[in-house]
Amino acid sequence: MIISVASGKGGTGKTLVATSLALSLSEKRKVQLLDCDVEEPNDHVFLRLPTDQSQPVFIRVPEIDRTKCTYCGKCAEVCVYNAIAVIKQKVLVFPELCHGCGACSYLCPESAIAEGGKEIGVVEKGSLGNLELVQGRLDIGELMAPPIIREVKKHIDSASEVIIDVSPGTSCPVVEAIGGSDFCLLVTEPTPFGLNDLSLAVEVVRKLRIPCAVVINRVGVGDGKVEDYCREQGIPVLLRIPLDREIAVLYSRGVPLVEGIPEWRKAFLELFQDVNRVFSAGATG
């Protein structure tokens, strides 16, 4: 089963839930944790697994063969991202704007465009026992997270339980990370910001037709409106984590909750069972 852990709002506890769920499950079965928050990957901070594989991620960008180019301008005309400009006897390529679609190269009448690789980040793999971590990391100054997320997801092993840690937000990196999941856990906090961003995240998973359930973190602060919202929307709340200084301090030290307070393992194993139950019941959230 592929479970993604998302939230809309940042800092609600996605990483806490993803790492503790992965660690709890890995006691008895193979688990893959994919850190698809490639702009700010944090799972490694908590798991501290040795990295045994590191692969650069390239996107394909145009390389112009100036001996063949006739400056006809076709490439600039077909590029909707404005990544190529042809000015008189010059072709300018802006690799950070290129999406690597390949249209320019294919459509060049002189076959003057080859596609070179531009490194935009890295995918790293490490494992310990039953648990494997695959994380993507976007290079600083690069714009596009989705190609790295796609590379991370190529490592999915269907014989494992797969947990995907997703970046905050509701746009392309989130859609790329969640797409293809069997289930999505939405982690939120009981505050007006948490509620606002939860409702946006629910719209995303509904658009993608992925069943979902909610985990509420820092229960005890804020108000009861997240609970009300979930009830009205028929979205099950499968786990509540209290606002507790001890939990916050463990998190600050990079200690996974289920390692710092092992009693929590039971709650995360039950969370997994509940996810399976809701998934099997075909609830679409």
Partner: peptide
Amino acid sequence: GPPGIGCPVI
């Protein structure tokens, strides 16, 4: 600003 370091942050 948004979280992260990618496109909308830049």
